[in-house]
């Protein structure tokens, strides 16, 4: 068997790959930001002393974390149109799904991050007269975010790899771009190899970056 990578030209890249690539990146960024936002809320709910906040958040997080992502992607794709009464595109459905799914993972990261801040810091904020929300926004969360940044970025890298699962609902992502190019040029094996190489290069260089960052941002205590 001969591998022929010559089909992989600028034309193929611009016609098939770029669109998928930009969606994968977009999905990763939106899901990270949205997941962090809702994940932080979930974490605060789980850490609150109010059971009616605690329990639903815990149930949500545990459910999401116990179901394979590809099933969640499929379910949301089928469920959302059913709930809102009209079909939505695969890309939008994927975006909503990923935010909802990643929120569960980010909430666990944030929960650990918030709990890693010594109680005395909370006392100190309170003693200055800060409200719960000021204490969280100005004292606890900034420190928790900073402590958790490497873990958050690592989760983002995993998230980027997981975006390829949207193939299940036919969304046009990076993998789909390679798949189409491979089909149209009769080079599926080469296309999948190239796809793997692109995922590898992106993820590996990002993880090197995370390592560098980790050394740089540690708070001096």
């Amino acid at each position: 068997m001969n591998l022929d990578l010559s089909f992989y030209s600028w034309e193929v890249i611009s016609r098939y790959i770029l669109q998928g690539f930009s969606f994968s990146i977009q999905l990763t960024i939106i899901a990270t930001l949205g997941g962090l936002f809702f994940g932080t809320l979930l974490a605060l709910m789980r850490l609150s002393s109010n059971r009616w906040l605690q329990l639903p958040a815990a149930a949500y997080v545990n459910t999401m974390r116990s179901i394979p992502l590809v099933m969640v992607i499929l379910w949301f794709f089928l469920l959302i149109p059913f709930m809102i009464g009209r079909p939505i595109g695969a890309e939008l459905s994927a975006t909503i799904t990923f935010i909802a799914f990643e929120a569960a993972y980010f909430s666990e990261i944030m929960r650990a991050g918030i709990q890693s801040i010594p109680r005395g810091q909370v006392f100190a904020g309170q003693a200055l007269g800060m409200t719960y929300s000021q204490n969280m926004r100005l004292i606890v969360l900034p420190q928790a975010f900073r402590n958790m940044l490497p873990v958050v970025l690592t989760q983002t890298i995993i998230l980027f790899q997981d975006t390829s699962l949207v193939y299940a609902i036919g969304a046009y992502d990076l993998l789909k771009g390679f798949e189409l190019a491979g089909k149209n040029y009769g080079r599926p094996i080469e296309a999948y190899l190239l796809a793997a190489a692109v995922y590898f290069v992106i993820c590996f260089s990002l993880s090197l970056l995370v390592k560098r960052l980790q050394e740089k941002i540690a708070i001096i205590r």
Partner: peptide, 20 residues
């Protein structure tokens, strides 16, 4: 309580300055 606390200064054993 926040208002009451803002009128009383407190110094802790482990300083508890905000490290960030």
């Amino acid at each position: 309580l926040p208002k009451l606390r803002s009128q009383i200064g407190m110094v802790f054993q482990h300083f508890e300055l905000f490290p960030h």
